[in-house]
Simulated assay, not measured.
Amino acid sequence: MNVTPFYPVGTPGQPWTAADAATWRARQVRKRSYADDVLGAIEPLRQRFEVGEYGALDYAEGHYPLLAIRSRDWNDALPVLLVTGGVHGYETSGVEGALQFVRDHGADYTGRANLLVVPCVSPWAYERILRWNPDAIDPNRNFRLDSPAAESAALVRLLAPLADKVLVHIDLHETTDSDESEFRPALAARDGTAYEPGEIPDGFYLVDSVANPQPAFQKVMIDAVAKVTHIAPADERGEIIGSPVVAPGVIEYDVKALGLCAGITDARYVTTTEVYPDSPRATPQQCNDAQVAAVRAGFDYALAQG
């Protein structure tokens, strides 16, 4: 195989060794604070919601408690509405959007449903603005109990008792320019494969479950987000990131088979949001607002179906 060197770690054409992974990890620099940005933002919410630790990560770089926010008046007779963010630590509006939703709208569902929000699944990666965990593993391909990613295994354990009680699961993500400039080249280098450039869509889109598509649910979220920011168009092949567009701003993945966060539970309604924060047409606040708009529209739609 003819492989051109493109990434500063590893030997082109060969999967990384343990030493290569250690070299990659040593290159990563802490750029922001999980304690300040996330734990600090959660603290005031304790006045209105239950906040619990569902696990903790102990890495050489520090100790990271994993927190979940839930309805104080939890009622097992009501459906569960689930939001997850920060599965990929660099996708900032997933974390900030989840926190903004709880702060501004979490109380709207009191007595109607049980709210469960996990705003930052991957705190180590959040601090370093990365996709992977410290072991160079993508949590969002490894959501299973025996996961090699501690971040993923902890969330699976949290949700296992609720698997058949979750009505909606909305997993908040971003698609960024760094997907092509850093993360996909790093993936190819790690796996010893050739990097093939892709395209970054300009705008918001959703990823539905191919095994349980809910087009009306996806549409109501797209319509709500379109009032906040622009929706990603299909490319010349009728695709977004290599997948056919099945409705404006919507593609489908087999979320369970791929080990994606959105596939953890047996929720009837699932989606993965994808915000484009590098667009010249969107501000950071618009990105957060888009995440919140999607969550509110999706939750309201699902509850209205009875």
Rank of each mutant, 00 (worst) to 15 (best):
M1G: 15
G10R: 09
G10F: 12
T11I: 15
P12Y: 03
P12L: 15
W16S: 06
A18W: 01
A22F: 03
Q28T: 03
V29G: 11
V29W: 02
V29P: 07
R32K: 13
S33E: 08
D37L: 15
L39H: 05
G40Y: 06
G40N: 11
G40E: 10
F49N: 02
G52N: 13
A60F: 06
H63T: 06
H63E: 10
L66M: 04
I69F: 01
N75H: 04
A77Q: 07
L78G: 00
G86A: 14
G86E: 13
S93C: 13
V102I: 09
V102T: 06
V117Q: 05
V117W: 03
V118Y: 01
C120A: 10
V121D: 13
S122N: 14
E127Y: 08
D138Q: 06
L145K: 05
D146L: 10
P148V: 10
L155D: 00
V166S: 00
V168H: 01
V168N: 02
L172T: 01
D179R: 03
F183C: 05
P185Y: 00
A189P: 00
G192V: 11
T193H: 10
I200Y: 00
Y205E: 09
V210F: 04
N212Y: 08
A216W: 00
A216T: 12
F217H: 05
M221P: 01
M221A: 14
D223Y: 09
A224S: 10
K227L: 15
A232L: 03
P233L: 15
A234I: 06
A234G: 09
I240C: 04
I241M: 08
G242P: 06
V250H: 03
A257E: 11
C261K: 02
A262Q: 04
D266C: 09
D266E: 14
Y269S: 13
V270E: 07
T272P: 00
T272E: 09
T272I: 13
V275E: 11
T283K: 03
T283P: 01
P284M: 08
C287V: 07
V292L: 06
A293V: 11
A293S: 13
A297E: 07
G298D: 13
F299Y: 01
F299D: 07
A304E: 13
